[in-house]
Write a protein that binds this DNA or RNA. Structure first.
Lengths: 187, 187
DNA sequence: CGCCGAGTTGAACTGAATCAAGAAACGTGG
DNA sequence: CCACGTTTCTTGATTCAGTTCAACTCGGCG
């Protein structure tokens, strides 16, 4: 649990009571590689903090498996559109490695938000941060070439490319595996 | 002001006191067509509610003017990345028509959030909604063709295309003006 | 030793951008 | 109300980045 509380520290200074309350709703689970955390086209009721391991968020586009996001240790995984809108989303989440996860459940979080102003603030900060990331990601899609995005990906997550196969990275970048292979070869 | 409070009603039921507090920080302004609401590469300190008129959020990409978003009556305009992150962003906002705007100032909003739990909750809902929109927009960029996006744009904002010239709409859709002209001609 | 998944390389194809005119719409002043 | 210039929109020809399809290489591993 410590890694979790350390990871969220930057967002908001929770009171001791707030921390205690938050801690009380956390659940931890260990799951093997290949485990399906969230099934596509269902409502995502949890935010997952990855304590150890690696998740892949993906969807199907024209019958093909496309990667939407990777979440390695110390980051969050969630089908955020579904989580917030309470509607099913096409995104599913699977484990690329044996992983250890901490789960935050939607209704528990909402309950705590109503009861504790400092938790409401904390969650607002998390959502704001999510919006900032989303906008940055949108911008990277618009302003950067696939090559730049590949570099950014490598500097944001050094060594991660060694744990993920090329096809998944390519679809995450929005290009074909062949094109990524050529980008790599070109330098 | 009434249109504003009507527009925000779906987000959260503010208390009478919350409404009063919120009302106290609102500012209204009328500005002519062409007026620059937010200068590019500066920090955006306000969220604007468009009571009347039309704004265009834009940026420069490889020396070209590209439209990021339009905000007609009863919607919000903001350089949200800058507003939330407190950093300058490339986006500027201008008026495409004479407009009447209601301004929500960052520091005032933050102050009210700290003081009133129900306003904090309201703002969280607004941000959550923004994240949902952002994700949907991201998805439309990935899953839809320019033609579908043009149709969606027209059904989301009927008649708006009559108030905006083709080049602005095309760059908003992520294609050239020539291509949009051909899409139109094809049906 | 041969199979299998992952990655690379090659050649043809394609959708959209670019470049370049031309047509239509608009508005301002005479 | 018309003439003229400017802006906006359309149409055509060419080019190019990236996809598609297909074959090939490489490194495990039963």
């Amino acid at each position: 649990m410590d890694t979790f509380f350390k990871a969220i520290e930057p967002y908001s200074k929770l009171s001791t009571e707030g921390k205690r309350q938050l801690k009380s709703i956390l659940k931890r689970q260990e799951r093997p590689k290949g485990y399906l955390l969230v099934k596509h086209d269902t409502v995502c009721n949890n935010i997952f903090f990855v304590e150890k391991g690696l998740t892949r968020t993906y969807y199907y586009k024209n019958g093909r498996d496309v990667t939407d996001w990777f979440s390695p240790e110390n980051t969050f995984a969630c089908s955020i559109l579904s989580y917030l809108s309470r509607n099913p989303d096409r995104r599913g989440i699977e484990l690329l490695e044996d992983s250890c996860l901490i789960t935050l459940q939607y209704y528990e979080i909402e309950r705590l938000c109503l009861q504790h102003h400092d938790i409401e603030n904390f969650v607002r900060q998390i959502i704001s941060d999510g919006l900032i990331r989303m906008q940055n990601r949108f911008d990277s899609l618009i302003f950067e070439t696939a090559e730049q995005r590949y570099k950014n990906f490598n500097s944001a997550f050094p060594f991660l490319h060694q744990r993920i196969n090329l096809g998944h990275i390519a679809s995450f970048l929005g290009i074909t595996q062949e094109t990524l292979s050529r980008i790599r070869a070109a330098k």
